[in-house]
Design a protein around this nucleic acid. Structure first.
Lengths: 346, 346
DNA sequence: GCCTTTGCTGACAACGTTGTCCAGCCCTAG
DNA sequence: CTAGGGCTGGACAACGTTGTCAGCAAAGGC
């Protein structure tokens, strides 16, 4: 492939075509600073002059270059959001909530999905920092956030959401994962289940570990043994989950209930369970759309992703407004929603 | 030289104390431009010097200020995405696809939801322009996009997706809405339905209008009269849709099938239909998760939001790379997925 | 009538980076 | 020994904006 010659002829689209305040000033016959004043609605300009400047702006199609403004002012009025997967309904609700709060504070939002890849998380977060976002909201994928230390020291606020930062003291807004699972598993035990499966996400993910802990503790507290073949942690790809559920339903002593560690697991598990000859109970972590319309309707431990996002973003902006104090850790509780699938007799 | 001890948390973060290339240069004992060269991996620096500069960067926690870079270079390596509602699964899949393409081209992504409000769309798009994004992907909410004319003239590329621009010649990537509805309605007619309802979004939304057109044309082509009480266009708030569906199922000659104009309508309509004494057929525009697990499973005309997003973003980057030529209009076709709910006898 | 105040305006530097250009330096060839 | 060339490194301007400060009228006070 041949590089287009730069020095000579064929130039890419011309950006010099953009009028600047200088151009506006020239056309309006005023000084540069006066244009700046008009554009920013600063006082101290005669109505007549304002009028002239505004016509010039209109005529030239001028729009202030916020990059230059940012450079001069220091604050960028933008925040970055790093999450796992924007296409996951859980995170898209969370994003939307963050976006809304940012908008209320006059900020724009950069978004990026880490795809659960630590390197990608870091790459995104640092790229946002290089753009000098005022703050970051992060759903962490990595195990070590020390790379953010210099950024935070330089004044970029960071709030972690859904999962805490690791190796770094930082604000975090979380759901009480273990507590939520405890509610769900207790519910299953009350229905008479004793052989309860737990299918979760990869162990290294904080929420997955916490949920597993909730499961083990609840079982132990109830005096129920846990056969290790009932526990499966790993990627939530449909094939794996499907295979695991299927496996657990075989043999002489199959599980009679499944606790699904997140919304993706619930959905995949469901697809297997509907084809079973005898009913198997299911309780899932995370609510999802239409859970109530399935038959049986799916009992879940619901998180409130919008509330997580909103709370995190609000905390971020409080920090940006100067709130000091040690890193906070807010924990929202989950809520058991009984719909039928968890009430199948054990 | 003794490093100031950072690790022990003794040092209070000094805000605004961000090191610049100048600081790095001073510390490394080299010139400013040499630091720039190292940071950008430009050739012509001795390995020894590179090493010195890199240690200084590390020690100071320097990160290049991309705002300044942007100002100097003209291109920002960022694009803006304006859509209707990030929390809607349709748009979140679309976003994710756009994000992925942007990433492949080394660009960051600004996102914003218009909430179907024309003013908000404009506000967002222009704010992105002020940040000098290289390009925009827009799901329009407004009826008049002339406000983008100066921006486009100044070199910002714009691609519309899902709905075309209005009052403006611009690239657009759409689904063949009328064609998709035609398939769905034809399917219902083949099942023997004569009284088919159409419930859609607000008329001013292009896709809603196109889908309605598809419905009317198909009915007309089949020689079936359309009673205006079977058609309802308006906001897709659950209450309204619920009321309309309920209304259409009453009276001496209730509809026997419902065509739902988008995924939100489908879901709401479903909630009403499951409670009906006699089965009512349903076909919806847009696929949605779990549609296949409901009973009956829901027959839909599926769009491919990820493909829409990907196609639009790819077109955008081709434009940014200099592809000229008149505005393109790409139309992807919808796909009827037969699952059961549309096969209820009429 | 002169001096002060007030209100409006513009010149200029600075933000942090990159592009241009030139000055050294070392090496080799004549 | 000198001229020329290749490398390396640095001084300086420029990107478009905003903050500072000074200039300059008109208005007001004595």
């Amino acid at each position: 492939m041949v590089e287009p010659e730069r020095a000579s002829g064929a130039a890419p689209p011309r950006y010099g075509a953009r009028p600047t305040m200088k151009d506006v000033a020239a056309r309006a016959g005023v000084g540069l600073k006066t244009v700046s004043r008009v554009v920013n609605g600063e006082p101290g300009v005669t109505p007549d002059t304002v009028q002239r400047v505004q016509s010039a702006i209109e005529a030239l199609g001028f729009r202030r270059n916020d990059s230059a403004r940012v450079l001069r002012k220091g604050r960028t009025a933008s925040v970055g959001l790093v999450l796992e997967d924007l296409a996951d309904p859980f995170y898209s609700s969370l994003s939307r909530a963050v976006e809304e709060v940012a908008r209320d504070h006059g900020s724009l939002l950069f978004t990026g999905s880490s795809a659960e890849d630590p390197e990608r998380e870091q790459e995104l977060a640092l790229a946002f920092c290089a753009r000098r976002v005022d703050g970051l909201v992060i759903v962490p994928a990595s195990q070590d956030h020390r790379y953010l230390q210099p950024e935070i020291a330089a004044g970029i606020a960071a709030v972690f959401v859904d999962r805490p930062a690791e190796q770094l003291e930082a604000d975090a807004v979380l759901t009480d994962n273990a507590g939520g699972v405890r509610e769900g598993v207790t519910h299953l035990i009350r229905q008479g289940h004793r052989r309860i499966a737990f299918i979760g996400d990869q162990r290294r993910i904080h929420t997955a570990g916490e949920r597993l802990r909730g499961y083990r503790e609840t079982m132990a507290d109830a005096g129920l043994p846990v056969d290790e073949s009932w526990v499966s942690m790993g990627p939530t790809a449909a094939e794996r989950v499907q295979a695991e559920v299927t496996r657990m339903l075989q043999g002489p002593e199959p599980v009679t209930a499944v606790f699904a560690g997140n919304n993706r697991v619930s959905v995949t598990a469901l697809r297997v369970l509907v084809n079973q000859p005898r009913p198997v109970a299911l309780v899932g972590f995370d609510d999802f759309e239409l859970a109530d319309l399935l038959s049986p309707a799916v009992t879940v431990v619901a998180q409130d992703p919008a509330r997580l996002g909103r709370t995190a973003a609000q905390l971020l902006f409080r920090r940006l407004e100067g709130e000091t104090g040690p890193p906070q850790r807010l924990e929202l509780s989950g809520r058991l929603i009984v719909r039928g699938s968890g009430e199948v007799a054990g």
